[in-house]
Amino acid sequence: MTLVERRAPASAGTAPVVRRVRRRRWLRAVTPLALVAAWEGGAQGGLLDPDKLPPPSAVLKVGWQLSADGTFGAYLLDSVQRAVLGLLIGGLLGLALGAVAGLVRLGDDLVDPSVQMARMLPHLGLVPLLIIWVGIGESLKVTLVALGAFFPIYLNTYAGIRDIDERLVEAARTCGLTALERVRHVVVPGALPSLFLGVRLAFAAGWLSLVVGEQVNGQGGLGFMMMEAREFSQTDVVVLGLVAYALLGLLSDLALRFAERRLLGWRRGLRAT
């Protein structure tokens, strides 16, 4: 039997799996496309008032016009910069404090009670106080995004570390691993699934916070574009802003899913049948 003949069965068995994966990806797009088609049909058929909810074709048209003159791109870049900066600040702070509280008993006693109390406060409800503290400029918007990202990452980092089986840590200690090696080889892999969940929740909370922040005395950004369009009753521009926020959230979630599959390829959870 030649090498080609020996490999044939393996490739033949792989092809159906690849086809199933591709079919599932297409199936995930069926519902959104159907909703868009129903939206367009309802608007064109007179079931939806175009002044209150313009059809997707009108939103696409105004999006093309704003993109052609560079307006939409400038607003989009402003929003992305604010989101990235806020997510980095809140995410890194949440990761650091969650690790300290999860790994060190003194850190747990000093950090966790205060964070648990603070997370009960709706951070969007702190806008009036934050305006007094940091003003109404860029600092307010970045702070809101950072607050939205901080708590999901802190809580999931803390929970991911505490949910690790203590017997694994004891086994690593018995094998002679140092504290740093135990963190690297046991704690980090064990906490990564929970941490990825926290990052996904942080992205969602961050985009939501940005929507609110950019509508408070905004100077640029998608939220400012929407508020300005509201003043002139440009509903299509308002809907365009909402669609842009939704697509940004979807793209960030897809990027996190891809990173999760690459970094957690060793994990095999329950799959839907």
Rank of each mutant, 00 (worst) to 15 (best):
T178W: 04
P189E: 04
A37M: 07
L103K: 00
L60P: 02
D165Q: 12
Q219L: 10
L240M: 07
P122V: 13
R182K: 11
P189C: 07
D163N: 14
R7Q: 15
A272F: 10
G107T: 01
P9F: 14
A99F: 00
V104L: 12
W64G: 09
V104Q: 03
L93S: 04
G249D: 10
G63I: 06
F151I: 06
V62R: 11
A68F: 08
V238E: 11
L208R: 15
A37N: 05
V238Y: 06
L76Q: 01
E260C: 07
R200F: 08
V142P: 00
T71H: 04
A179Q: 12
L129V: 13
D49F: 05
G94D: 00
S209G: 15
G70M: 04
R173D: 09
S67K: 03
M227V: 06
Q234T: 03
R230T: 06
Y154D: 00
G176Q: 11
I153Q: 03
Q219H: 11
L3N: 13
L263A: 13
V84S: 08
A255G: 02
G91K: 01
L95F: 00
V239E: 05
L60M: 07
R173V: 06
L126C: 09
A259L: 15
L201D: 05
D108K: 01
D108H: 03
Y154V: 00
R184F: 03
V59D: 01
P128T: 06
L264H: 12
A146H: 00
R200P: 07
V186M: 05
Q81P: 02
L33H: 04
S139H: 13
L222I: 15
E40T: 03
R23Q: 15
F203A: 14
A272H: 13
S252D: 07
I132G: 05
G90W: 00
K52D: 10
W64Y: 09
G137E: 11
V36C: 03
A259W: 14
M227D: 09
S252F: 15
D109S: 13
R119M: 10
L180P: 04
D51T: 12
Y75L: 02
L155S: 10
I164H: 11
A204Y: 10
L47G: 03
F151Y: 15
E228M: 10
E231Y: 12
R230S: 11
V62P: 04
L124S: 07
V169I: 14
A83Q: 11
A171K: 04
L168Q: 11
T157I: 07
L66K: 11
W207P: 09
W39Y: 02
M120H: 14
L180M: 12
A255E: 01
A99L: 02
